[in-house]
Amino acid sequence: MSYGFTLADIEFLTSAAGTDALAGVDALELTSATYLADVATARKLVGPNVGPVLETVLLRRKAVSKMDSPERWLFTDDALQQATPAEVAQHRAARFAGRDVHDVTCSIGMDLVYTSYTAGISVGSDLDAVRVHMARHNTGLPVLQADALRPVTRGTAILADPARRDSSGRRRWRPSDFAPPLDALADVYAGRDMAVKCAPGIDPSDVPWAREIELVSLNGSVREACLWTGSLATPGVRRRASVLRTGAEPWSITDADPDDCPVTAPSEWLIDPDGAVVRAGLVRQYAARHGLAQLDPRIAYLTGATPPAGIRAFRVVEHGRYTEKALRQELARRKVGKLEILVRGLDVDPNALRPRLRLRGAEEATVVLTRIGNTPTALLCNAVRTN
Rank of each mutant, 00 (worst) to 15 (best):
P52I: 01
Y35D: 10
R95F: 14
D26T: 05
L74S: 01
W73S: 10
I121D: 05
T115G: 10
K62M: 07
A23P: 00
V39W: 03
L45Q: 12
T34P: 05
H137N: 06
A83C: 07
Y114V: 09
D77E: 14
G18Y: 04
C106Q: 03
T6G: 10
Y117R: 15
R92N: 15
Y117D: 14
R61M: 09
L58A: 12
V64H: 06
D26G: 13
N138I: 04
L13C: 09
G24N: 08
S125C: 04
G47K: 12
A94N: 12
L59A: 06
N49E: 10
I10M: 08
T56D: 05
E87Q: 10
A79P: 06
T34I: 09
V46R: 00
D78R: 14
P70N: 07
Y114E: 15
G98E: 14
D26E: 15
A21K: 01
L54W: 03
V25Y: 06
A97W: 08
L36K: 12
D20W: 00
S65F: 07
D103I: 11
A89T: 11
F75A: 12
E71L: 01
S125H: 00
Y114D: 15
A37L: 07
I10Q: 09
R95A: 14
A27Y: 06
R92P: 07
N138V: 05
V25T: 09
Y35E: 10
T34M: 13
D77S: 15
I121T: 11
S65T: 10
A63Q: 00
A129I: 08
F96Q: 07
F12R: 02
L36A: 15
L58S: 11
R92W: 09
A8F: 02
S122Q: 01
T41F: 08
D9I: 04
T56P: 02
V101L: 09
G18W: 02
H133Y: 06
A63I: 01
T14W: 04
A89Y: 11
A129H: 09
A40D: 11
V64M: 06
S65W: 02
N138Q: 06
A119N: 07
T6K: 02
A93P: 04
A97L: 12
S107D: 09
P70E: 13
L13P: 06
T19L: 12
Y117K: 14
F75G: 12
R61H: 11
A97N: 14
T115A: 15
V57N: 00
T118R: 07
L112Y: 02
M134E: 00
L45G: 05
G140V: 03
T84D: 12
G109M: 01
V46L: 01
D111Q: 12
A21F: 03
S69C: 10
T41Q: 15
G120V: 10
P85E: 09
T105L: 09
T76Y: 11
F75Y: 15
H133L: 14
Y117T: 14
A8K: 11
Q82R: 14
A89S: 15
H102Y: 11
T139F: 03
H133T: 12
G140W: 03
D111F: 05
V64R: 14
Y117C: 11
M134A: 04
V104D: 00
A37F: 07
